[in-house]
Structure formats: structure tokens, C-alpha cells
Simulated scan of single mutants.
Amino acid sequence: MNKTNVLSKVDHTILSPTATREDVERICQESITYQTASACIPPCYVMDMKTKFGEKLTITTVIGFPLGYMTTAAKVAEAKQAVADGADEIDMVINVSAVKSGEFDRVQSEIERVKAAVGSHILKVIIETSYLTEDEKIEMCKIVSHAGADFIKTSTGFSDAGASLADIALFKQHLSDGVLIKASGGIRSKADFEAFVEAGVARIGASSAISAFNGKEGHAGY
């Protein structure tokens, strides 16, 4: 599979709690050099990286990350701040506790409020698949579709497990037309990237795509 085609679908990611400013700048420069879909970076660096790299760089950042159980008001405030700072795309974590409690209306309302806050900016909704039953995953496909989000995303990369091809197939069965899929968590080898692209994902969140396609072993985690 063509390297350029795969990298164009990658959100080149650095979300480690120990990442330094130098690390973040490196990821951003690599994103520009290799023409990845975006660089996914911590919110605290969004303004600085947008100032440094300008329109050459598409920036994704995260809100409600990584556990998702902060209040809706906090997530909305985070989202508004991220957009004001220059983020182009937002990846939000759902309230998994609310899903496990069967509070699906609450989950949908939260996604709708965050989408309203980011407006035309792309919103990806992380449902943290490793914590959900198959029925809950199906319900989340319906909720994400109805709430007007642009993407459903598998994982934060911080939970028990990451993306699986089985979940991608499940999503494709239950998402509305127009809702795209982002796979993330545990995708490290060239074969992994090619398999998920072939499965139909529009984005992959990973820290190791460039190294994998340059013949180096991908490193674990975000």
C-alpha cells in the first residue's frame, strides 16, 4: 500500500504526560514533512504550535482526556478554548460512566453541546471500546450519528486495549452515512496501518506511523 496514502490518514500523535515542548515540536514538524492528516497534541501547546507553524499544520487536540468523566460544562469550555487557540479538529472522550449507567440521553446531549461549541471544526468522539459491551458500542454508533459528530473514534490509547478490526466492522454496520471512523490505540506496525486503512477507516491515531513506514519499529502508546 502506498506510504503517502496511509500517512495522509494519520493523526500523528503525542499525548504522553511526559512529552516535552521539544517532543511536541518534533511531531508537528514531522506532520508537515510527511503530510499527515494532522498532528494530535496536548491542549496546552495548541496556541504555541499554531503560532509557530501557522497554516502549514493542521492541529488536532483532545478534550475530556483521557477519562471523560468531567462535567459537560468543562468539556464545552475546553472545546471553545481549543478552537480559540487554533485547533482545527477536536477529539472528545465520552462519559463512559454515563454509558455504563444507561444514561444515553445524557451522553448524546453532551456530544451535541460540544459539537455546537466547535461549530464547523471536525469533532471526533472517543467511545473507549475496551470498556463497552457490543450492545453499548452499537448504541454509541447511533448516538454519535444522531448528535452530529463527524467521527467515531475507538480509543484514547490509555485504556485496557485499543482498536480492533472487529470493532471497525461493527461500526460500519451501525453508523449513519457520513459519519467517519478513526481507529486508535495499539496500531504500530506497517501491517497494522495497512489493515485498518483497508478496513475502511478515514483516520488512524498513532505515534508510530512514520517510523513504521520508514522501516523502524513503532513505539508503544501515546
Rank of each mutant, 00 (worst) to 15 (best):
F65M: 15
I63G: 05
D91T: 07
A82V: 09
V83D: 04
Y69T: 10
D85H: 05
E112F: 00
P42F: 04
G102F: 09
C44Q: 02
V76R: 06
A87Q: 11
K52G: 03
K115N: 04
V93L: 07
A39E: 14
P66E: 12
A77K: 06
V62K: 11
R106C: 01
D105H: 07
G64C: 14
I90K: 10
V46H: 04
A84L: 15
I90R: 04
K100Y: 06
K75G: 03
V76E: 02
T71H: 12
V46K: 03
G86S: 12
M92F: 14
D91N: 12
G54Y: 09
F53G: 05
D91V: 07
A73N: 14
E78G: 08
Y45F: 15
A82E: 11
Q108V: 00
K52P: 03
V93Y: 01
T60S: 14
V46T: 11
T60E: 04
C40Q: 06
E89N: 10
I41Q: 01
M49T: 05
C40K: 06
E55I: 09
I41C: 02
A98H: 06
I90T: 11
M70T: 15
G64V: 14
G54F: 08
K115S: 03
Y45V: 01
Y69D: 12
M92Y: 12
Q81M: 14
E89A: 05
F104R: 01
K52S: 08
M92L: 15
N95I: 10
K115L: 04
F104Q: 00
A77Y: 08
G86M: 12
A98P: 03
E112W: 02
F53T: 08
I111C: 05
M47C: 09
S101T: 11
M92T: 13
R106F: 10
A74E: 14
G64N: 15
V96N: 01
V107Q: 00
E89Q: 13
Y45Q: 01
A79M: 14
A87D: 12
D85I: 00
D91W: 04
A84T: 15
E78D: 15
S109Q: 14
S109L: 05
M47L: 10
A84V: 09
S97F: 07
I111M: 03
A87P: 09
E110H: 03
E103H: 08
V62Y: 10
D105N: 13
S97M: 10
T58S: 09
C44H: 00
A98N: 08
V93Q: 03
A79T: 12
A73Q: 15
Q108L: 03
A73M: 13
F65D: 13
G68E: 04
A73D: 15
T72A: 08
V76C: 02
I94V: 13
Q108Y: 00
T60R: 07
A87H: 07
E89W: 03
K50G: 06
A79G: 11
V99A: 01
I63E: 02
D48F: 13
T71I: 13
D85K: 01
A79I: 10
T71D: 04
G54I: 09
F104S: 02
V93C: 10
N95L: 11
G54Q: 06
K100D: 02
V107A: 00
A39Y: 11
F104P: 00
V99Q: 00
I59E: 04
A82N: 10
A77W: 07
D105V: 09
D88N: 15
I94M: 04
D88T: 03
M70N: 15
G86W: 12
